[in-house]
Amino acid sequence: MDSSADAFAPPEAGWIAVSPRLATARRVTLVLVYVVVVAGGVVLALAPLPVVWLVVYVVAALAAFVWTWWIIGRRVRSFGYAEREADLLVVSGTLVRRLVIVPYGRMQMVDLRAGPIDRWLGISTVQLHTAAATTDATIPGLLPADAAALRERLAARGEERTAGL
């Protein structure tokens, strides 16, 4: 297929990728979830049930773990953003691909946040809000300095654009 047919074609400047630490953060969360899953397995092992149940449980849990581990890597690599002159582009997703284009003039608020695991690993998330609830412009996995700078730039550009009204 020629490039003009690609609805997700990168802008001239290309996509800026997010930090691979995001994958680490999500894998840490995955491991934490699996603490509960393993606990469930222990209960199952102690329960007076046929062994086949336990085997099925372990195989399913392992398969889900490996698959999620792998898909986290792909998803994190799929994130990208680009600041153009008048708008911000955010691309994400592997199975379902998404591209969001938000003109700076439509931004109402720029959020900067980081959960405990994010802070520990040194990454944060920038999210743009418009008057529409369906606008889904979230850039996770930014280094704190980059995130703060990005938010400042976005806020400044937003003011510049709305001031022209």
Partner: peptide, 11 residues
């Protein structure tokens, strides 16, 4: 009145 444009593509 449009706030943003989104493109999506499922498998």
């Amino acid at each position: 009145r449009v706030q943003s444009v989104r493109v999506t593509q499922g498998p």
